[in-house]
C-alpha cells in the first residue's frame, strides 16, 4: 500500500502542537514511533530529558510499518508548521493534519488543512541522537507524591531564579514536601502538608533531600501549565521524575515526563 513507514492523521493538530510545546526547550527533538504511538524526546546538558507521549489512540489513523521508526527533527520548525494557521483558531474550526514519513533520509511531510486552505510542509530529518537512559523504573521509586497541578503552578512561576538550585525535600515526617531555593535574596521554602487537599497521593518512605539545577527544571513549567496533575517521584540515587497528566480539549489524556539528574556538587553548608 503506502510507501510510508509512518503515516498518521489527526483531526486537530493542536492536540499534538500543545504537547510538543510542553517539551520545547531545545531546537532539536528525537521522534520515536511504534504501534503504540509517538514519543518526542528533548534533552539538554546530559542532565535533563523531556518526553511527550502521544498514544496511537489520540490519532484518527496511526500506522507504523516497522517495529519502530526513529528520526531527529528541528522542533521549532515542526511547531511553526503545525501552527501555521495560528495557535488559537476560531471556535468550531480546527486544523486537520496528515503526517507522513517515508524513512531514513526523507523529510517529514505535513499536510494541514483549515477552512479549505491547504498547507504542505517538508521538514528535513536527521540522524537520531543517542538518548540518555535514566533507567527510572517504578520498582526503584523511594518517594512519590501526586499533586494537583494548581498547587505547583504558582510556585514554579515564582521560583527565585537567582538560586542555582531547586531543593526538593520529601519525607514521611515534617516538612513532608518542601521546595527550597537559595538565592541572592536569601532562602525561601514552600511547604505542603501531607493532608493538604492538593495532595492526591503521598507515599514517602524515607527522608530525601535532593538538589536540581533550577535552570534545567524551569522548562518543565510549560508542561506544568497545561497539566491537571503532576506526579513527583525520586529513586535512591536522587533522580527525579516529574510526570504531567495533560487533558486536551476533547478530554483525552496524554503524558509529558521530565527526568532530571540530581545536582552533584551539594555543599552541605547551606542547609537550613
Amino acid at each position: 500500500g503506502e510507501p510510508y513507514v509512518l503515516a498518521a492523521s489527526l483531526d486537530n493538530a493542536r492536540h499534538l502542537s500543545s504537547l510538543l510545546r510542553a517539551v520545547h526547550f531545545q531546537d532539536h527533538a528525537t521522534c520515536f514511533a511504534t504501534a503504540n504511538g509517538l514519543r518526542v524526546t528533548v534533552e539538554d546538558a546530559k542532565c535533563i530529558q523531556a518526553n511527550a507521549f502521544i498514544q496511537a489512540e489520540i490519532f484518527q489513523d496511526f500506522a507504523v510499518q516497522e517495529e519502530s521508526v526513529t528520526f531527529r527533527i528541528n522542533l521549532s520548525v515542526l511547531l511553526d508548521c503545525l501552527t501555521i494557521f495560528g495557535t488559537s483558531s476560531l471556535p468550531g474550526t480546527s486544523t486537520a493534519l496528515r503526517m507522513c514519513y517515508r524513512g531514513y533520509g526523507y523529510p517529514l511531510m505535513l499536510f494541514l488543512e483549515e477552512g479549505g486552505v491547504v498547507t504542505v510542509c517538508k521538514i528535513n530529518t536527521q540522524e537520531p541522537d543517542q538518548l540518555l537512559d535514566f533507567d527510572f523504573c517504578s520498582t526503584k521509586v523511594v518517594n512519590k507524591i501526586i499533586l494537583q497541578s494548581d498547587g505547583l503552578r504558582e510556585a514554579f512561576a515564582e521560583l527565585d531564579m537567582t538560586s542555582e538550585v531547586l531543593q526538593i525535600t520529601m519525607s514521611p515526617d515534617k516538612p513532608y514536601f518542601r521546595l527550597s531555593t537559595f538565592g541572592n535574596a536569601g532562602s525561601a521554602h514552600l511547604d505542603y502538608p501531607r493532608d493538604s487537599d492538593l495532595m492526591e497521593t503521598f507515599h514517602c518512605n524515607q527522608t530525601q533531600t535532593n538538589r536540581y539545577k533550577i535552570s534545567l527544571l524551569k522548562p518543565s513549567t510549560k508542561a506544568l501549565a497545561l497539566s491537571c496533575k503532576v506526579s513527583i517521584r525520586t529513586d535512591a540515587q536522587g533522580f527525579l521524575s516529574l510526570q504531567y497528566m495533560i487533558r486536551n480539549e476533547d478530554g483525552q489524556i496524554c503524558f509529558v515526563e521530565y527526568y532530571c539528574c540530581p545536582d552533584e556538587d551539594i555543599t552541605e553548608a547551606e542547609f537550613m
Partner: peptide, 19 residues
C-alpha cells in the same frame, strides 16, 4: 533575617528568609 511567611490555601506555607 527578615522572615516573611505567607499562609496560603490548602495549608501551603511559603517562608522567605530575606537577608
Amino acid at each position: 533575617r527578615l522572615v516573611v511567611q505567607l499562609h496560603c490555601k490548602y495549608g501551603v506555607t511559603k517562608t522567605h528568609n530575606l537577608a
